[in-house]
């Protein structure tokens, strides 16, 4: 066994690529949940974003338009969820599961004529001098644009939630919608925007998968990434930077276990495949054990229905 075959630098680079779809979807879902809405349809919006982004990129020849298409697709699908949960006051858990079913089905129908096509390649950052630096170069200065965008998005969400009035209103709606309503805030409108944002982020995550990480379209290609994103939000206790850490940790363990296998580590591969999930549970337990810290961030109204006339 030769552990030196595992290069920490390339490990970090691959884990960022593997984590970015989950990170994008999770940061969107964080905003949704902060507004007091639980949308379990992330998987459906992701896969719908994967195909709509793919179609947009292939038709236009531009990866950028592809990502816009992916975000638009995810947001479009989330409109169904908005109608059901915000206007028809349907149960959010069941609506979210239905959304996943719908997204998987619709994406497959749309994607029939797009299997086996190569999407246009995305540009990588290449700054003369910086990108060629050892260690720092590959880790910091030579990714595709979306990785920088995803990190900027995390920073943006953090700033929005903690430093802006709109963010304060969003959190207020998630904490106590009746009080927020009494103060004159438009509860439904805030949630509507949050859900659209969440849908767009999930769609973007899906498009990252079909345009950069894999790059191709295959039916059902998200294979559960949306569920992991949901888990990462809770894992990150609804804090943007912790969500980033959670996503990278999850991606990191996944990549590490594949690398360990390649150097010939002799643990059953099936057991190694479990490790990302088990480690997620362990870290969650450690973090939640401190009761004061953990429960503060959970939006009190998560999953509850709101009707103005109440």
């Amino acid at each position: 066994m030769d552990f030196s075959a595992i290069s920490p630098v390339s490990l970090i680079v691959s884990l960022m690529i593997a984590s970015t779809p989950i990170l994008l979807a999770a940061i969107g879902e964080l905003v949704v949940e902060k507004s007091g809405v639980l949308n379990l349809g992330v998987e459906g919006m992701m896969i719908f974003g994967a195909i709509s982004g793919f179609i947009a990129a292939v038709t236009s020849g531009s990866p950028l338009i592809g990502f816009i298409g992916g975000a638009a697709g995810g947001a479009l699908l989330s409109v169904l969820f908005i109608i059901l949960t915000q206007y028809l006051m349907a149960n959010q858990v069941a609506s979210g599961l239905g959304l996943t079913m719908m997204g998987l089905g619709l994406s497959a129908l749309l994607g029939y004529s797009y299997a086996g096509i190569k999407p246009p390649a995305s540009a990588h950052l290449d700054i003369a001098g910086l990108s060629d630096l050892p260690v720092v170069g590959p880790i910091l200065f030579s990714h595709d644009i979306m990785i920088y965008f995803s990190i900027a998005l995390v920073a943006g969400v953090w700033y929005f939630l903690n430093r802006t009035k709109a963010g304060l209103i969003l959190r207020a709606v998630g904490e106590n919608h009746d009080a927020a309503h009494a103060l004159g805030y438009k509860v439904i409108r805030v949630r509507l925007l949050a859900i659209l944002f969440g849908g767009a982020c999930a769609g973007l995550g899906g498009a990252y998968l079909s345009l950069i990480r894999v790059p191709q379209w295959t039916e059902g290609m998200t294979t559960g990434a949306g569920w992991i994103a949901l888990a990462i939000v809770v894992f990150g206790s609804w804090k943007p930077w912790r969500v980033l850490i959670g996503a990278y940790l999850f991606g990191g363990v996944t990549i590490l276990q594949l690398n360990l296998q390649a150097v010939g580590v002799n643990i059953g591969a099936a057991y190694l495949s479990m490790t990302p999930y088990i480690i997620t549970i362990i870290v969650l337990v450690v973090m939640s054990a401190d009761k004061k810290r953990a429960s503060i961030n959970a939006p009190a109204m998560l999953g509850r229905l709101f009707h103005a006339s109440k």
Binding site: L84, L88, G98, M101, M102, S107, L109
Partner: peptide, 19 residues
């Protein structure tokens, strides 16, 4: 996939009409 979409529709209508 068309059956999946159909089942999704059924679910949405069932949930939506509950209002």
């Amino acid at each position: 996939a068309s059956i999946q979409v159909f089942q999704g529709m059924l679910l949405f209508f069932l949930l939506g009409f509950e209002i």
